[in-house]
Simulated scan of single mutants.
Amino acid sequence: MSDTTIPGTSGSPGTPRARHARHAKSPAQPARDPRSPKGPGPQDAKPAGLWSDAWHDLRRRPLFIASAVLICVILLMAAVPQLFTSVDPYDAAGCRLGDARQAPSSGHWFGTDSQGCDTFARTVYGTRVSLLVGLSATLVTTLVGGLLGLVAGFRGGWPDALLSRVAEIFFAVPSVLGALLILAVFRTGTMWTVMLALAMLAWPMTFRIMRAAVITAKGQDYVIAARALGASGGRLMFRHILPNSIASVIVVATVNLGVFIAAEAGLSFLGVGVQSPSISWGLMIADARPRFLEAASPLLFPAAFLSLTVLAFIMLGDAVRDALDPKLR
């Protein structure tokens, strides 16, 4: 007896219903263009913010790259001076009066000073004091001035009026004269007193810049919307306003760092800043000035390091400013 397939049954491979079932197993997929890129589409891409856009722009600026490389070398010199010289300038045994005021040579790359000490070693070790004063003063002025400017710009009213009047009093005092007066009163000659004297007179500039940025930011739509949703004052200040107001303060802080380093050198040169046995570039320039015509290298090399350091931080501040300000691109 032969097997017979009943027409119209689902098990029959030749029936129309079976053929339709085979074709309906999987839905039709659209053909993919082989030229289309792999990965998520434009709708899945993460939107670029201010900082990521600024970093992308900074990496293409030769000015930023050159200043960043120079600053990294200076920071390494201040952190680990033993990588650059094996001579310890704080060791009195390394200074020989018989080698005083020698010209640059293979044994002393920058020559020697009036005490017979190696100028290159003193220049390398002097980086730490000058850089610490600049970094500390910048940190204090940014924190104090930025916080007071945030409160004054956000609160308004009598807190704004009071803080603004106090800042104007400090603005009325000339920076160099005020620092000279403060350091002459304390007479300690340490880098911390120099830092405090500079920070005490410089915070009003950061205060005014932050205050103006906060006043502009707190009238934006996203702040008004967050306030309408019930956000507290602290959340509005630190979550919404501060991230959108800090860019200008960072630019000013970068430039001020170089200014503070130069100010420390000037105060030490005048005799009211860092005192011996500490080593700083300004103190080295002051010690070498009377013998400049006999030996120029003890003055020229620390002055060159000072100029390059200040120039590097100012160039970095200019590059950051251009990257964070879309109008300057």
Rank of each mutant, 00 (worst) to 15 (best):
I74P: 00
Q275S: 11
A228S: 13
D113S: 00
L76N: 00
K218L: 08
A303D: 01
K46Y: 09
M205P: 00
T9I: 14
F292E: 03
V259F: 08
A296V: 06
R61V: 03
L181Y: 04
R35D: 15
R235Q: 12
L162I: 12
L139I: 08
L181W: 05
P30F: 09
L148M: 14
F170V: 00
R128F: 00
S278V: 01
R291H: 12
V133N: 01
D118P: 07
A312D: 03
S67L: 04
C95A: 14
G234H: 08
R165Y: 06
D221T: 02
V69W: 03
P34G: 11
D91Q: 12
P159Q: 09
S307G: 14
P159I: 07
L283H: 06
L299Y: 04
R289M: 12
S12D: 15
L181G: 00
V80P: 01
T112R: 05
G149N: 05
P40N: 14
A295G: 03
A197D: 00
Y90R: 13
P7Q: 13
L242A: 15
T141W: 00
L293R: 13
G271P: 09
H240T: 09
G11L: 12
S297P: 02
A303I: 02
P89E: 10
D325R: 14
A24Y: 05
A24G: 12
K46R: 13
V144N: 05
G282F: 02
D318R: 13
A161M: 14
T127D: 01
D318H: 12
A68F: 11
W51D: 02
M315V: 06
W158Q: 10
L132R: 09
A179D: 05
A225Y: 10
A197V: 00
T142S: 13
A103P: 03
P243A: 13
P13N: 05
T5F: 05
V259D: 07
P42T: 08
V129E: 01
A137N: 07
V151H: 07
I246T: 09
A28N: 12
K327Q: 14
P302S: 01
T309S: 12
T112D: 03
R128H: 01
S164Y: 04
S114N: 10
A31I: 15
P47T: 02
A304L: 11
G126N: 01
A253R: 06
T188H: 01
Q275W: 03
A152S: 14
W192E: 14
A24E: 13
L163F: 14
G266M: 07
D57S: 12
S297L: 02
V255I: 15
G94D: 05
G39D: 12
E264A: 07
V129D: 02
G178S: 06
G126C: 01
